[in-house]
Write a protein that binds this DNA or RNA. Structure first.
Lengths: 117, 117
DNA sequence: CGCCTGATTCGACAAACGTCGATGCGCTGA
DNA sequence: TCAGCGCATCGACGTTTGTCGAATCAGGCG
């Protein structure tokens, strides 16, 4: 990854939104956006993300989604990756930690892939 | 990846298109879709993909896009990955090999990320 | 045919990744 | 105050990945 202490991406700051078909991606943007796609590039992470995205109220606590076939530390590790990529945000409320998707970040990825426009 | 000889995905067969917000992804679909996102999860590959997607006429030969800062065999390696993920198709015409994006596959990814609907 | 150019395949290697069990931290409730 | 639960971090491990140079394959052209 050549990911030496990547700063956690700001949840509301998507670097680029123009469709890939409209113009060539800059080197810097390609690094940022690739990190996001990479975060969804693991089946376990994609399922975790899916569980949060489809959760009632738009949020889910770890205990609700950790049944994905790997150990609890591994779930925590993957959630951290998704957080660091800017795709999820987390908040502790009492005993539980709740995760939500960062809508604008995901929208930015979708916009990038919207090739016919 | 536990990727023992994944078959090249059929360019026109996207397994799932419903937004992630609507329902939880199945295990099988998560594997398939994660492979696609993973293919875009490298800066070099994302730039190559971007170059093809934004090329005039919707296609580009390797020689036109291989200036991404890595050696030519590495470019070929990355293009193969993108092909195996179903995101690009290639065709040899004479001396050159031309790459195109597989629009429906990319559209499927975009649909998955379209969370507000 | 034999050479040149474009592109893929091969073999090797360091770095990054996914996974686990053990451990640590934060909060709640007895 | 201390036990217990939820979640994160640590340390270690085998596997996968990205990269390269060298070799190979595929066409065009003299």
């Amino acid at each position: 990854m050549s990911n030496l202490e990547l700063p956690v991406l700001e949840a509301e700051a998507v670097p680029c939104c123009a469709p890939l078909s409209s113009a060539e991606l800059s080197v810097g943007d390609s690094v940022t956006m690739a990190a996001m796609f990479k975060a969804l590039g693991d089946p376990v992470r994609l399922r975790l993300f899916s569980k949060v995205a489809s959760a009632e109220g738009g949020e889910a606590c770890v205990c609700d989604i950790q049944d994905v076939g790997v150990s609890q530390p591994t779930v925590s590790h993957h959630l951290k990756k998704l957080r660091e990529a800017g795709l999820l945000t987390s908040e502790r409320r009492g005993t539980w930690v709740y995760y939500r998707v960062a809508p604008s970040v995901v929208a930015g990825m979708a916009a990038l892939l919207d090739l016919d426009r």
